[in-house]
């Protein structure tokens, strides 16, 4: 199997089949919290894509070329969370300096990303699963784009739910969760998508 095809398949698989929110349960907090408006969910999603890809590119070499040769692989979680926290700060400063308009739309979501478990979850499972750098990158891209897709779709649904006539007890979050369940069922249908592809 050529490397390129496997790269693309890994992206699609972590984006759709094993979706980050609907089947791996990373990043439920922003998924429920920042999805009231389409615009804000788009901003959050793009910020997450940005940070996850950068964090993958830093943390994977950090683990493989620094922590593992130094025989301290058990420091991984501490190192990752520090990298992510400082990365979020740096990205914030960088965007503020070079593109104030982008900062205006993304800036408020950046601090929220430090405690978004999607970022740490992807970075940690990359090294826990022993992926190669290319596959780790594919996992990062796929996961973050999957997050973006799902949170935008979900916010579109939620906008309509606001005006729907739901029972009083289900108003707000409960009906949003039920909607997410139906989305998860829909995504379950994608399992085994690659079974037919001969490589």
């Amino acid at each position: 199997m050529s490397t390129f095809i496997s790269f693309v398949l890994a992206i699609i698989s972590s984006m759709l089949i094993d979706n980050v929110v609907l089947s791996r349960f990373y990043g439920i907090c922003p998924f429920l919290g920042v999805s009231r408006k389409v615009k804000s969910s788009l901003g959050m999603g793009i910020a997450v894509v940005f940070v996850i890809i950068l964090a993958t590119c830093i943390c994977w070499p950090l683990y493989t070329y620094v922590l593992e040769p130094a025989e301290i692989p058990f420091m991984d979680t501490v190192a990752y969370i520090l990298v992510i926290a400082s990365l979020v700060q740096l990205v914030g400063l960088f965007i503020k300096k070079y593109s104030p308009s982008l900062y205006k739309s993304l800036g408020i979501y950046l601090p929220l990303i430090t405690t978004n478990c999607a970022v740490l979850g992807v970075v940690q499972s990359n090294t826990d699963q022993g992926l190669t750098f290319l596959n780790a990158l594919a996992n990062g891209i796929g996961t973050s784009v999957g997050f973006l897709v799902v949170i935008v779709v979900f916010s579109c649904i939620r906008v309509r739910l606001e005006s729907a006539n739901t029972p009083k007890a289900f108003k707000g979050l409960p009906i949003a969760l039920i909607t997410a369940a139906i989305m998860a069922i829909a995504f379950m249908g994608l399992q085994g998508l690659f079974s037919g592809i001969k490589l």
Binding site: P167, A169, F170, K171, G172, I175, I178, A181
Partner: peptide, 25 residues
């Protein structure tokens, strides 16, 4: 077996939250 899958988790959590909201109301 749906309740063992991710979808079931969302359903149960949603209904439990609805019950909490009901009690609150």
């Amino acid at each position: 077996s749906l309740f063992q899958t991710p979808a079931g988790a969302f359903i149960v959590f949603g209904i439990v939250l609805a019950v909490v909201a009901f009690i609150k109301n």
